[in-house]
Design a protein around this nucleic acid. Structure first.
Lengths: 225, 225
DNA sequence: TGACTACTTTAAGAAATTGTTAAGCGGTTT
DNA sequence: AAACCGCTTAACAATTTCTTAAAGTAGTCA
């Protein structure tokens, strides 16, 4: 089994060292960065499986960094966990739910951290196994046959709608920003108007029911039963 | 998924190296031999999925080697692809059609080669699933006799139509993109116009009925009852 | 409340993709 | 040589899908 890569981002060298040490001891390949810019550079180069990101950092803070990572489609398989100080003001973080896959609170107890990291990666592993046929809320999707099923009935969707649904259902409950959606369905180059996504969302809602795709105002959309 | 084994046979070390390198890069397990005798020895020992065989070799040439491999029943599941120089005299090869499953022409462009190899192996994969006669929606196909049956009546299809149908029926319901179709029926090198596939689809629909082959716009075609 | 921002909705026309027909070409058969 | 056959292409038709514009709704902020 290949070593899993973890990128650790924090501005405090102590944290980097302690957490890094514990993760290495457990057999992970650990990279560290003490600021957002460096983190993104390493992330692009190494394609880590998990990025542990301190929310509070000078210069480019954790949320901004997360945002940028989430907008890079080459990193779409990378998980992000926020490191937050207990009791820290969650309000902004909650609003920025868009990107993080999990939270880890400081102060970090090594053992807790390691088991949490393993849990996160395990989740990823099992998610990857299910490349095919996701099923949520009466809707299932068959990428190979390019059809979706709603309550047993097959339904053909046009390409863009299919891809959009496919993306959202890839991780039900997770919010995808417009930018992320753009990147993964249209690709970085193509520029289409802002309303285009909305229209496709509309069509999906018409076909699948109004409640399955939820709007998170100012952030994006998510698929949720 | 298990690594697929490929045995590469050519008397020119350069070819072995270049082609071998590209195949390894794509995740195949590659064996090489620079003459027919050695090739047969390795083939018997390793039972590769595919043997790529240079037709022109000193000592025991490609065709003779092919013949021997074909006579070894333990290697009946092994595919053989002939490596031929473009413009080489095809007359003898054509006469020996019995054994080769495909042709690859030199000079080989790495990408073309890789996609061709994948196409060949894919064909094998789907053939193995359906050892004999697939039957869907009143249509059955006999690859060995090169005949299809529609409601009991035998029907002879031209080569391209047969192959196209054969591909689509290889996994009913599955969508095959134009690219995939191109690759497996025409091979990566040949470039034919955009409408060619459509015309063949048209002919198949005329002969088999309009509803069996479905268009998935922007994606491809699929065969479905 | 009024201004503002973000999303929704509808409908129309642009754009992209596929369908269809007929014709040409190289080979083969009669 | 004439008649076929299979494959490909070209041209244009038909259809589907995508995008945009524009007007509407809802929530937010000052």
């Amino acid at each position: 089994m290949k070593k899993e890569k973890i990128l650790l981002v924090d501005d405090e060298p102590d944290i980097l060292e302690i957490v890094g040490y514990n993760l290495k001891k457990e057999g992970f390949e650990v990279f560290t960065a003490d600021n957002g810019k460096e983190a993104i550079k390493i992330a692009k180069a190494e394609k880590p499986d998990l990025i542990i990101l301190d929310v509070m950092m000078p210069e480019m803070d954790g949320m901004e960094t997360c945002y940028q990572i989430r907008n890079d489609s080459s990193l779409k398989d990378t998980l992000i966990a926020f490191l937050t100080a207990r009791g820290e003001d969650y309000s902004q973080i909650a609003g920025f739910d868009a990107g993080a896959d999990d939270y880890i609170t400081k102060p970090v107890k090594p053992r807790v951290l390691v088991s949490k990291v393993k849990a996160i990666l395990r989740r990823k592993g099992s998610a990857e196994q299910t490349v095919q046929d996701i099923e949520v809320g009466g809707i299932s999707i068959d990428r190979e046959r390019y059809v979706i099923k709603k309550d047993g009935n097959e339904l053909n969707l046009p390409k863009k709608e299919f891809e959009l649904l496919s993306l959202l259902m890839g991780k039900p409950g997770r919010v995808y920003t417009r930018e992320v959606i753009m990147n993964s369905i249209w690709g970085g180059e193509v520029v289409v108007g802002d309303r285009t996504i909305d229209v496709h969302i509309r069509k999906l809602r018409e076909k699948l029911g109004e409640d399955l795709i939820k709007t998170v105002k100012g952030v994006g959309y998510k698929f949720e039963a």
